[in-house]
Simulated assay, not measured.
Amino acid sequence: MTAMSGTPAYVQVAADLRSQIEKGVLPEGAQLPSMTRLREQYGVSNTVVRDALNELRREGLVVGQQGKGVFVRSRDAALAAPATEGLEGRLDELAETVRGLERRLTLLEERGAVQGRREPNG
């Protein structure tokens, strides 16, 4: 659903979600669709969806609740958010990146162990 316009896909997804929030299609307190649903809806990868949601977090439009999902923030809460709010979102983003790297490293290590067993002893 993203256009081949030269604009990064995450920017396009964020713009569409931002528009839905501004128009009230996604009202204050509403839960955004799941990562899987957004990925299917826009025809993009998890990385694109994650980056789009992080963009909206940085703008103060949405807030994540661990284990529950991502929700549209009230305008009052977004305006009154402390300066540390951006830091919390950035820390969440970095933590997710580290978890992804850990998963990738584990897969690489497992593949290396399998390949190591196949190599002849010399």
Rank of each mutant, 00 (worst) to 15 (best):
L101K: 12
M35H: 14
E28V: 08
S34Q: 05
L94R: 11
S19L: 14
E40L: 11
G89Y: 11
T106Y: 11
L38E: 01
A77N: 04
G24V: 03
R73G: 00
N54K: 00
V98N: 06
A113L: 10
N121R: 14
N54E: 08
L105A: 11
T36C: 01
G122R: 15
R18W: 10
V98G: 05
Q12E: 11
V70P: 02
G24M: 03
D76W: 07
G116N: 08
E88M: 06
G67A: 03
G122L: 14
S74A: 10
A80D: 06
T36A: 15
R50C: 08
E102K: 11
Q115S: 09
P8H: 02
E102N: 14
G122P: 14
L108V: 07
N46V: 01
F71P: 08
P27D: 03
D16R: 09
G43R: 02
Q31Y: 00
G89C: 00
E59T: 08
E102G: 13
G67Y: 09
L53P: 03
G24C: 04
E55S: 14
G29M: 09
Q31D: 03
T84V: 10
V114K: 14
R73P: 03
T2V: 15
T47Q: 13
E85F: 12
G116P: 00
V63D: 06
V49I: 14
Q31N: 12
E28T: 14
N54T: 07
